[in-house]
Design a protein around this nucleic acid. Structure first.
Length: 221
DNA sequence: GCATTAACACATC
DNA sequence: GATGTGTTAATGC
């Protein structure tokens, strides 16, 4: 019997945080502060984010290239399931973050034997893959204002809470952090956000970002 | 022409 | 004092 990926992922809620927590229950909690390193390039463990936000990076021409960002319920360093040396490292973006760490051999055994783990893995890899595709699209097909807005829509969809008719992200990443995902300069992020604020489409400061008019924001793309 | 870089003032942690 | 924000002139493609 063949089952579509969508059916496989949604037939049961087996990839919720609570289920993954169960699989990681033997693993100790790691509590980290902003900018702490979660793992380095030689690390072969799989991580589950319980709280906060982390970014996965690699070195490119002596500079840090930000690959992706992860938050509660997501698996990080999934590449170690398929290769031994993904050459990636991770650090904490939020003020604090709690994660659980699972050795490579344990994670690989779960891939073979545990269906709920398979679902969680599929879901985590799928969403990360989607983000990468969206990023390629925005970097190659949009002008700089649209790049920022395109990223903002992804970010609000992922991290935003609906409050009445508005959407709030709190805490919010810095302009420098958004720069990496939007694919523009830090100053451009700031300029675009400030222009949108003048138009009352959104509001922001260091602590939060509020989208006041999502419809209008979307109309810029 | 569009976007980045550089530079600087100012705010906040 | 370090880090983040906001603005603008110069520079580059």
């Amino acid at each position: 019997m063949t089952v579509s990926i969508k059916e496989f992922l949604s037939s049961e809620d087996l990839f919720k945080v609570s289920d993954l927590r169960g699989l990681f229950k033997e693993m100790p909690d790691l509590k980290l502060q902003r900018l702490d390193q979660l793992f380095d390039e030689s690390d072969r463990s799989l991580y589950l984010v319980l709280d906060g936000m982390v970014r996965v990076c690699s070195w490119c021409k002596g500079e840090e290239f930000v690959e992706d960002y992860f938050q509660a319920g997501e698996l990080v360093n999934c590449k170690i399931l398929l290769e031994d040396s993904p050459q990636q490292f991770a650090e904490v973006m939020s003020r604090e973050s709690t994660v659980k760490k699972m050795p490579q051999f344990v994670a690989r055994e779960l891939v073979r034997s545990n269906e709920s783990f398979q679902r969680a893995l599929m879901s985590s890899i799928y969403t990360s893959w989607n983000r990468s595709q969206q990023r390629v699209y925005r970097v190659s097909a949009l002008n700089s204002e649209q790049k920022v807005i395109h990223f903002l829509l992804e970010y609000i969809g992922r991290s935003g809470r609906r409050v009445g008719l508005e959407y709030v992200i709190k805490p919010v990443m810095t302009h420098e952090e958004m720069r990496a995902f939007a694919g523009v300069s830090r100053q451009t992020v700031c300029t675009v956000l400030s222009a949108l604020r003048r138009k009352a489409i959104l509001d922001f400061n260091r602590r939060y970002l509020i989208i006041r008019d999502l419809k209008k924001l979307k109309s810029y793309l």
